[in-house]
Nucleic acid binder design. Structure first.
Lengths: 150, 150
DNA sequence: TATAAATTTTAGCTTGCACTAAATTTTGTC
DNA sequence: GACAAAATTTAGTGCAAGCTAAAATTTATA
């Protein structure tokens, strides 16, 4: 029984399907990627290195889950890794982490200025930061600058 | 070859696994449910009925995807449906839809008051509304009430 | 009313992301 | 340096949500 090699038709179909996945992935998956690179950047900056076990602990998931996520991040060019060694951000990964951090800070500070307590602001900012357009971010920035604490 | 019936050990394991899934599911899945019931409520209120084909068109997904989602919503007690007929919200589904709508409006209006143009505000509110705690929502409500357009 | 068109449902596939258990490798200690 | 502990990776499983293609059913029309 031969037929191991996929037919052209099957390949074409696979490509079309992959294309349509792309759109879908960018929705929820970008958030996960941002959370990971942000956390990795924090760990590197604070403790000097990012280890999978720490990521797992902070994110409340298992090592295996983190490992799978890191494989995807590496595939997407956001991190680099050598087997059994700690994790590094690529230039693109670092850029995304910084951007996420800045976004996070602005959202959190805006919420605080609006009267939300800082713990709640921190938590909500975590969820909100991934859904803010450049325009809204600019508006929040202006809101923070204009007429501070009187 | 017997062994069709799962062993007690396997069942116990399945239960534990199911439990841990619950936590995870509530993260992203609640957002999807909220989007669906909100849209279903809108369609019912505006056009008189909610059809799968309209949901698919508005959400930019295929009929098959909508159908699978509706099965989950029905399983979770948010909608009811008869085969090949249009969709209805349960009391719980309607409640969730109203809550989401209110949340959506508040976020959108707050963004507008912060200087974001209404189209962008509408889009961003869609993403943000699922990540707002009760406290932040209250703060936004106060922000909207206090010192309107001068 | 018979047939065509539209809609809904089913079947089968893929990826993401969660889990447990076990294997592999590195690190730490005696 | 050998051995135990810690960490990483792999293997195998499940559900959500997306897709296409095709079957089933309802609705519209000639």
């Amino acid at each position: 029984m031969p037929a191991k090699r996929p037919s052209p038709t099957v390949l074409r179909e696979a490509t079309r399907q992959a294309r349509s996945f792309e759109r879908v992935r960018q929705a929820h998956q970008r958030e996960v990627a941002e959370d990971y690179v942000e956390l990795i950047a924090d760990l590197i900056d604070v403790t000097g290195e990012a280890r999978a076990v720490d990521l797992a602990e902070r994110l409340g998931v298992t090592n295996a889950t983190v490992n799978a996520a890191l494989n995807r991040l590496a595939r997407d060019g956001l991190v680099t890794r050598q087997r059994y060694r700690s994790i590094f951000l690529t230039t693109e990964g670092r850029r995304l982490a910084e951007e996420s951090r800045a976004r996070h800070r602005i959202v959190r500070d805006a919420l605080i200025k609006l009267g939300v307590d800082s713990e709640t602001a921190e938590i909500d900012a975590e969820g909100i930061e991934h859904h803010i357009s450049a325009r809204t971010l600019a508006a929040l920035r202006e809101f923070l600058e204009g007429a501070g604490t009187p």
